[in-house]
């Protein structure tokens, strides 16, 4: 070892003899970037939430107070927006889970090897298409003279147009692959012998589904829901494109940080999705979902 290529005085040799130094050098740059720069930026933002903007000068006054959070709580419209955003996130997650399950089941347990490959690509391909392009596509779908109107009109149903329905549909569409893929991966790991054993022991397919497949699948569903949930909570672009005049939390943050120039209030609003996500991650962690990412 001592006479190896890792000689005494070369940098490689020094590193060779000090694994902790090696670790420090490997971990240092990413941690400076994420642990120091990024976390400081996040921390500074949330400190700002406890400051106020002077309504005359527009300057930030560094006086500690809870005014922003009080406003958030007391002005009804913000509560409405917060609950609307949460309701959209839950709806999108449920819609995605319900749609993803049959596809994932078909891909993992019924399709032949060849079809499995084709389907994985078919599901992945729209994931590579641009987010904006997909939201834009649904704007065209829901437009007053667009295909949804054309399809529903003969049945006497009026197209929902731009609004909350279109927002949920578009967001569910956008994040669907994020739900299908972990579910598919989770189902693929369920050995067929386990399902056969369940059937041999007299379980009907429905019972096998409920008592064998679903419990195994739970972490995968939660893993997928992290994406559908988090991505929906922070979104303000889709609702601008297909949501008509409706606002989500992201719009409130955007408007206050930009045009209104009230960063402290924007920061206070931004804590809502972060707190929801942190609580959600803590809960989901127990199911082992984080290992499925």
């Amino acid at each position: 070892m001592e006479q190896g290529a890792a000689g005494r005085s070369t940098p490689g040799g020094t590193l060779h003899r000090h694994p902790r130094l090696r670790l420090g050098l490997l971990l240092g740059p990413p941690m400076l970037w994420l642990g120091v720069a990024y976390l400081t930026a996040l921390g500074a933002l949330f400190l700002t939430a406890f400051w106020t903007t002077n309504s005359f000068t527009g300057d930030i006054e560094k006086v500690w107070n809870l005014d922003n959070f009080r406003q958030l709580w007391e002005i009804g419209v913000y509560k409405t927006v917060a609950f609307r955003t949460l309701a959209i996130a839950v709806s999108v997650t449920v819609v995605d889970a319900v749609i993803a399950f049959p596809i994932a089941l078909f891909m993992a347990k019924i399709a032949s090897r060849r079809w499995q490959r084709i389907l994985v690509i078919a599901v992945l391909m729209p994931l590579w298409a641009s987010y904006l392009v997909k939201a834009y596509a649904w704007r065209a779908m829901f437009s007053a003279t667009g295909p949804v109107h054309w399809l529903l009109d003969p049945f006497g149903i009026s197209s929902p147009g731009y609004g909350l329905t279109a927002t949920v549909v578009t967001l569910a569409y956008l994040w669907l692959p994020y739900m299908i893929l972990p579910m598919y991966a989770g189902l693929e790991r369920v050995p067929n012998s386990l399902l056969e054993a369940s059937a041999d022991l007299g379980a009907r397919p429905g019972t096998t589904l409920r008592r064998v497949i679903l419990p195994i699948l739970t972490p995968a569903v939660f893993a997928g829901s992290i994406f559908t949930f988090s991505l929906t909570l922070g979104d303000y672009i889709t609702v601008k494109i297909v949501g008509g005049a409706n606002q989500m939390l992201g719009n409130v943050v955007y408007d206050n940080s930009g045009a209104a120039g009230n960063l402290p209030f924007a920061a206070a609003v931004a804590t809502i999705p972060v707190v929801i996500m942190l609580v959600y991650l803590a809960v989901v962690r127990r199911t082992g979902a984080l290992d499925e990412l």
Binding site: L34, G35, A44, L231, G234, S257, A266, A267
Partner: peptide, 28 residues
Amino acid sequence: AVSLLIILPIALPGIVTGIALQNAFTKI
């Protein structure tokens, strides 16, 4: 904690990362 930190920028809503970085760049 480190692996959680690496996931954090995509786990947090983009708008949070956005205004946090904007604030850090321009104000700090």
